[in-house]
């Protein structure tokens, strides 16, 4: 079988299967732990929880963001780009069509290139921050260096493949393979905040509003 067809077909299916089954496993084991742990629960406060989620989604919505202007702008743009780009990139849509026969709205080329630049700059910023800001370095583990490096590689190789810079086929295959590693890593790494952040935020929000009568943003 040719290598492109291998990463394009079976390995892509495998990566998404790991993502979905892995997330389910993490969610179920989290529920199980939550049920038996000797843990103090705040009284449920739906409004406090929702407000905390909202404040932490909006740029400058929380005080730690207001204290760090550059960091907030970069993180916000990074998250927009890193989520929107893979879903709405024209080349990816051509591939979805190849596999499933349906299409959706696609980004223009300049918009896609701008978003790639945002992700690359943001990753360099995140890596630099972990390396050079001592309070961040002290709480950084190896995997937290690895993730921005992996994302950087995925986006750079994608850009090069799309613009046909460098050896085309190896670049494309490397781009797809590293993306699949990234997707499969989501449930087993810090990337799980994609799924878990609303819960931790809701918990903090509820605890602060009901128990402490304070804001957590």
């Amino acid at each position: 079988m040719d290598l492109y067809e291998l990463v394009r077909g079976p390995l892509a299916v495998a990566a998404f299967a790991v993502l979905i089954l892995g997330s389910l496993y993490r969610a179920l084991s989290m529920i199980k732990v939550g049920k038996k742990a000797k843990m103090l629960y705040p009284q449920a406060s739906i409004s406090g929880g929702l407000r905390s989620i909202l404040h932490h989604l909006l740029p400058f919505g929380a005080s730690y963001m207001r204290a760090r202007t550059v960091f907030t702008v970069i993180t916000f743009l990074f998250h927009m780009a890193v989520i929107i780009l893979p879903i709405f990139l024209m080349s990816h849509i051509v591939l979805w069509f190849e596999s499933f026969g349906f299409l959706w709205w696609e980004l223009s080329k300049p918009a896609a290139d701008t978003m790639t630049a945002v992700v690359v700059i943001a990753c360099l910023f995140f890596i630099g921050r972990r390396l050079f800001v001592s309070e961040v370095r002290q709480v950084s583990s190896a995997s937290e260096y690895l993730l921005p490096i992996l994302i950087l590689i995925v986006f750079l190789t994608g850009f090069c493949a799309s613009h046909q810079w460098g050896p085309y086929r190896p670049m494309l295959i490397f781009h797809i393979a590293t993306s699949e590693i990234l997707i499969a890593l989501i449930p087993f790494s810090r990337l799980m905040h994609m799924l878990f952040f609303p819960f931790s935020r809701a918990y903090m929000g509820a605890e602060h509003s009901r128990v402490l009568g304070a804001k957590d943003w």
């Binding site: 492109y4 067809e5 394009r8 080349s91 051509v94 799309s162 046909q164 085309y168 086929r169 494309l172």
Partner: peptide
């Protein structure tokens, strides 16, 4: 060819 760049070569 089955890859974008092989059908659309620069």
């Amino acid at each position: 060819p089955t890859t974008c760049g092989e059908c659309h070569p620069k």
